[in-house]
Design a protein around this nucleic acid. Structure first.
Lengths: 121, 121
DNA sequence: CACTTGTCTTGATGTTTGTCAAAATAGACG
DNA sequence: CGTCTATTTTGACAAACATCAAGACAAGTG
């Protein structure tokens, strides 16, 4: 119920209106910026894409590590950033840890950038 | 014609498919990340929102400066970042410079995060 | 041409960030 | 319980960043 799926997006959850429609408040902007910042790194963007697009909805870290020329700690660091914003969630099952994309968070951000219903000139 | 409305989003313009649908290539991610990074700062997020939501579609820098507790050079810096990614365009008319949001760029990013047509489970 | 106002550029500074090596934790398997 | 693999945490360092003061540039006004 009061599950906190979107840690950093929480306070901003009340703005389902595109930022094109009305100016964000300073508080909303501070709540939303970390999510975009998390997407602002090529590695994290690919990580999220790999996770979100993977069949079954979840991916083992071991599979993610192989897709990059980066050491495991670096991948782990980026995953933590994504997790901190609520864009993904982690779930350990035995030896392996699986990451899953949080569509709710993606929808929030997508809607924020979308055009407001009507026109697109 | 070959107008370059989306400087940094240019190379990534060929991915109109949500990142949920299929994994981004490294090149696509590198092309897109700067745009999200530009949105990853509270000040820039508010700036974009102020510009995009303003009646008439454009805003004078002088109006933007007043909305923040920041010096003019700082605002100018953030506007330049937004401009470099193609999220906004600038246009000097006489004494004042007007900024305008580039809906094409916003649509691209929004679509990238959107769910792929069908389900939303 | 001088003066004023609006905007941007340059240079400097303290903070944040991406990356890795080394060490720590978590679980499986003898 | 010891050992092996998977993942995370810690610590360190260079690169990138946000911010400002000072100065430069643009354009309108006397």
């Amino acid at each position: 119920m009061s599950k906190q799926l979107l840690p950093l997006l929480d306070q901003a959850a009340d703005c389902h209106v595109p930022l094109v429609a009305e100016p964000l408040t300073a508080a909303q902007a501070e709540g939303l910026a970390p999510a975009f910042k998390a997407l602002g790194d090529p590695v994290r963007l690919r990580l999220l894409s790999l996770i979100a697009s993977h069949e079954g909805g979840e991916v083992c870290v071991c599979d993610l590590t192989d897709a990059f020329d980066l050491k495991a700690p670096t991948i782990s660091h980026h995953l933590r950033v994504l997790k901190a914003t609520g864009l993904v969630t982690a779930d350990r099952r035995g030896t392996w840890v699986y990451y899953r994309a949080e569509r709710e968070a993606l929808d929030l951000l997508s809607g924020l950038l979308a055009a407001p219903a009507e026109a697109t000139a």
